[in-house]
Design a protein around this nucleic acid. Sequence first.
DNA 1: GACTCTATCTCGGTA
DNA 2: TACCGAGGTAGAGTC
Lengths: 219, 219
Amino acid sequence: MRLVVARCTVDYEGRLAAHLAEAVRLIMVKSDGCVAIHADGGAYKPLNWMNAPNTLLDEGERWVVSNPKGERLTIDLLEILADELHEFGPDPGLEKDGVEAHLQALLAEHPDTIAAGLTLVRREFPTDIGPVDLLCRDADGTAVAVEVKRRGEIDGVEQLTRYLDRLERDPLLRGIRGIFVAQIIKPQARVLAESRGIGWVEVDYDALRGIESDELRLF
Amino acid sequence: MRLVVARCTVDYEGRLAAHLAEAVRLIMVKSDGCVAIHADGGAYKPLNWMNAPNTLLDEGERWVVSNPKGERLTIDLLEILADELHEFGPDPGLEKDGVEAHLQALLAEHPDTIAAGLTLVRREFPTDIGPVDLLCRDADGTAVAVEVKRRGEIDGVEQLTRYLDRLERDPLLRGIRGIFVAQIIKPQARVLAESRGIGWVEVDYDALRGIESDELRLF
DNA sequence: GACTCTATCTCGGTA
DNA sequence: TACCGAGGTAGAGTC
């Protein structure tokens, strides 16, 4: 990784046009060629960047980074304050725990925490516009499509509505109803769900994990 | 900005749990206190980060960054390869050109490029579920709600549908129709729009800019 | 390759 | 402050 601290101006031409007036910034060039310009504040997101694959043309006081899509990042270096190269070696990468996929897996194991009597038919049940998170049956044998989100917002209700629309056309699933499940469901999403006859349930992730670990303890 | 290159392990506990096994990485500490851990490859996004406001507790070989929301980032430094401090000064920030707001402004100036005879009533016309990009009238005096996107996808059609649903309840707007406008509209979005009686138009951003600059040239 | 959806989304606006 | 919508969304997974 090459780290350059320099007074510079930057121009990006591509999906939009953007300009950075003169200031001191960090220019990070990673070993895969991607370039990021950071200010000393704000978020983790750089002011400007160029992902790999690209080609960096180093003309000394001007760098031009361009990629096959026709995007171009031009960096004019007015004063270089530091320029260092570091060897990093490989990175094992990030291990995550607690994202939507995990919540979905927990719910698939314990569908009755969504609604009493619910049993799982299949996870990621396919439709022609994408897979439904959980397809279940309730105690009466009625099909139930479940959409799982970490945070329940209006988009999720729209998504479930589209799935229900498709699934209703399948004779085996006729009469299907929907349940929107999330750790927190925003008021607007609740209202929209209710107005469409879709149920909604807030689930407690930590409680689900608790059930899981209790069961593991039995073995 | 403090730049530390170190062999380290990192743990994040907060909105999820995440762990980074031992490797050499860049630890960036910006002057507003935010911390980002970068690998030497991949995208511009750091592996782990903590935004301001937060507090960094430096215990030498262990840093603990915590924030008021209860998130915590723990960095264990096994070997420090570089540790530098740079003064940056203020940053004038990024100037952007060519985003949706600009497209909307151009279309508001030239509503007839959307459909012949269209005149603007108001930009950002309010409804109780959010503002419609453009409210217009066509040559017959019929109200027309226009949703503008840079890229036309299914979400935009859903959004416009919700607005139309609301606007139809206003006696002054009864009979309102919708037009979905974008630089590129995906086939699925077209089909959905058509199935709901919503019109769609692809507009040429550069051509609109051309009209604009031609007009400026007259002054 | 195209499409879909998640994200510690981030970021900016507004009420 | 919370809510809402845009993003050069990026990135992963699937088909």
